[in-house]
């Protein structure tokens, strides 16, 4: 499906959606939002890209393979749980560090876990969408 209007709009909307998805991701600790919702918003951005430019273009826009997103996401989730073992607590005990990151706030294992969820959701959703879009 070729539509100049839609393609031009996608060029502007796509980066906005990705930025917004990251905003939703980091907002999620104390307010509505989080890794799953953020990942879905990000995946919606890529879905827009698929509809406008086709799956091949969307693949290049993702830069890495979808499985890599998934694998890194899962690794981050596992890693965020393992950090607490190093600190001597039970698995998945939340660890907070006093380092302040500008804009984002405190660093802690929940943020790592949510980032993992975010990446994994993008990866899985894109695998599903692309296998539906390819015919």
């Amino acid at each position: 499906m070729f539509s100049l209007l839609f393609r031009t709009a996608t060029r502007f909307l796509f980066p906005l959606m990705i930025v917004f998805s990251i905003f939703v991701l980091f907002r999620g600790h104390n307010a509505p939002g989080g890794g799953f919702i953020g990942g879905l918003v990000g995946a919606a951005g890529f879905a827009l890209y698929i509809i406008a430019f086709g799956t091949e273009q969307a693949r290049t826009a993702m830069r890495f393979s979808r499985r890599l997103y998934m694998a890194i996401g899962l690794t981050l989730m596992l890693g965020s749980g393992l950090v607490s073992l190093l600190a001597g607590d039970a698995f998945m005990t939340t660890q907070w560090y006093s380092i302040q990151i500008p804009v984002l706030g405190k660093l802690g294992t929940p943020a790592i876990f949510d980032t993992g969820v975010y990446l994994a959701v993008i990866g899985v959703t894109m695998i599903i969408l692309m296998s539906l879009a390819e015919d």
Binding site: F36, V124, T125, I128, S131, L132
Partner: peptide
């Protein structure tokens, strides 16, 4: 909901 999302996506495929 999250689990249902995954399962239904698989079901559609």
């Amino acid at each position: 909901i999250v689990i249902g999302f995954g399962v239904q996506a698989f079901a559609i495929i």
